[in-house]
């Protein structure tokens, strides 16, 4: 057995580091945690190290190999998280604790805000299907350009559906008596 090295070839390491940098940079846009990026890139390194016999070939062939490895590593990480979560909820039933995000003000305001928030979430559920994902994405903080890109829609179509979706949401909230106009 040749002596195992914990390091990838310099060229491959450079490609991996370059890719990691790119994921991190892109991640800034998607509010991705550094821990998630690190986990994927660690997995990528392990996989490439295991395939080190051909690593020289990998490093000179193309960096798209690193990309493909990263996609499959990220997929596996997602699968493992799911499996872990399933195990946990089978053994301990502690995941059902509601996460309550604190609202400014006293308990009464907190309760009121939670109720309004619940109404907003419900009203979003009722938006017409073709507009709903766009509204959800927008409310979750994704910029319009990214929504358009993900759905393969033109900027105009995205803007139109989002505009209508938000108008519908506001109308539904008004029907429920939720909104500044109706607060005392």
């Amino acid at each position: 057995m040749p002596q195992a090295s914990n390091e990838l070839s310099t060229a491959l390491e450079s490609t991996v580091a370059n890719f990691a940098g790119m994921v991190r940079r892109v991640g800034w846009r998607y509010r991705l945690s550094d821990a998630d990026v690190d986990e994927v890139m660690q997995e990528v390194r392990i996989r490439l190290w295991r395939a080190r016999a051909s690593s020289e070939q990998i490093s000179t062939s193309s960096a798209s190999y690193v990309y493909r490895t990263a996609v499959s590593a990220a997929l596996d990480i997602a699968r493992r998280r799911r499996a872990r979560k399933a195990e946990l909820s089978d053994s301990i039933d502690d995941d059902a604790t509601p996460v309550v995000v604190a609202a400014p003000g006293g308990p009464a305001e907190e309760l009121e805000q939670s109720e309004v928030a619940r109404q907003v979430a419900q009203a979003v559920d009722e938006i017409v299907e073709s507009r709903r994902p766009v509204v959800r994405m927008y409310l979750a903080g994704y910029p319009r350009e990214e929504i358009a890109e993900l759905l393969g829609w033109s900027e105009a179509k995205t803007r139109n559906l989002l505009y209508r979706g938000l108008a519908e949401l506001r109308a539904r909230l008004t029907e429920r008596g939720v909104g500044w106009e109706t607060t005392k």
Binding site: A103, T174, W180
Partner: peptide, 24 residues
């Protein structure tokens, strides 16, 4: 439109509503 709630306020409430729902 018919409701004066700003986009920012909607986002805030949506985040709160989603978080509470996910926990429950």
């Amino acid at each position: 439109m018919t409701n004066g709630m700003s986009d920012a306020r909607l986002r805030q409430l949506y985040a709160l509503g989603s978080a509470n729902r996910a926990g429950a």
